[in-house]
Design a binder for these strands. Structure first.
Lengths: 210, 210
DNA sequence: CAATTAACCGCATAAAGATGTGCTTTAAGA
DNA sequence: TCTTAAAGCACATCTTTATGCGGTTAATTG
């Protein structure tokens, strides 16, 4: 059962959210407040898996509430709710450790999916929010090093290694036999001049192959 | 009618995507190719509203394909498809003007929603991708890098792992028994939330522990 | 003082990895 | 055409890792 704690100043929306979430399989609203003036005590008391946090609230606003939560509770997921895809708030919320950022006009069914995603470690955001985020990103740069003449297939395999996959999992993901995975990996080791998986992973990072 | 152009080297997936999209109200696949060596000519010829672009392809890869599209066609929406929520590729794709970034394992129904969102100007991304994006964001503005409460000894061991040492070699270097090395490593895995040497090494790099 | 934590060690077992050899098919180049 | 590289597969063997359990000692701290 995923425990949800709600902060939302609008009474109708607060009630609506509570009913929606409480009426859904696997979710339960442990409490709902109209401001987050006592957010730390409340989170400590109710130990929610997820906090739905409205941004625009009187008194302590949502961003400040988020920061207060983060001071004490690193693992609690916080989903920001807002009416605007306003880039200043998006940026500030993300910087402060929000686990997702969604618009209030999101349809109820979708909202539940987002909550579930956040609960399982994802970072849901509505498409319009994502657009803001991508724009902010477009101004940065990155360079890459040599690639040691790895073939396309070898690069893919290395990628899997870096992501912590076992030979068996790689075989399954790539639709090839485990012995073929072995062959590729042997070749990769030769090209990188290493002789273990973790060395290959380390080299991949150091030389920015991945 | 939203016109979709597909680039995907895996024949099964290419066929599957084509059928899925062609079978959906309001969408039509104008063509599907197994590589993007001639992407500019093809986009010019078919004038798609949306391009689905696999990242891992032989020859011209998806990122290069994206860049080629962007050289000539600013308005064509490009949705990147990949098996990994790997941060280097996410970053590079976003930087090059991708309109969205989604995982191949996304369920078909969801995939269609994403395509629709991209077509109408949004920037869809799966929750796990969004997580990567958020992490990159917060790492840009605080260079710290958490240390996961590793003890001094554990940090030393991790350092050896990163440098490609086997348990036996670590034991020799640190003048302790191999079983003690095991104990330390188990503790490290717990603290880093991983369960293999290469994952630990990867995490050490990603989170700048070493 | 009792509890906690880091560091240390041992044994046992199952899974995963590393390495060698040898084979086919296909595509690209000299 | 011959050669080479890549990709695929199989079997065998040995080593290393991962994980479970158990334990002692020393230092710290509420």
């Amino acid at each position: 059962m995923t425990k949800v704690l709600i902060y939302e100043d609008n009474p109708q929306l607060r009630e609506g959210l509570t009913m929606l979430i409480d009426g859904s399989e696997g979710f339960s609203v442990v409490a709902a407040f109209k401001n987050c003036n006592n957010v730390q005590d409340e989170v400590a008391a109710f130990k929610p898996d997820i906090v739905l946090m409205d941004i625009d609230m009187p008194g302590t606003n949502g961003i400040e509430g988020l920061k207060k939560i983060r001071e004490q509770f690193a693992d609690t997921k916080v989903l920001m709710l807002t009416v605007f895809d306003d880039n200043k708030n998006v940026f500030e919320a993300i910087r402060s450790g929000a686990n997702g950022y969604i618009l209030k006009k999101t349809p109820p069914a979708r909202l539940l999916e987002y909550i579930a995603e956040a609960a399982s470690g994802g970072a849901p955001m509505t498409a319009s929010i994502a657009t803001q985020v991508l724009k902010m990103f477009s101004s940065l740069h990155n360079e890459k090093g040599e690639d040691y003449n790895l073939s396309e297939r070898e690069k893919q395999v290395l990628q899997f290694l870096v992501n912590g996959y076992s030979y068996k999992m790689i075989a399954a993901e790539m639709f090839i036999a485990i012995d073929t995975v072995r062959s590729h990996i042997k070749k990769i080791y030769e090209k990188l001049h290493v002789n273990s998986k973790s060395e290959a992973v380390a080299k991949a990072f150091k030389d920015k192959i991945v």
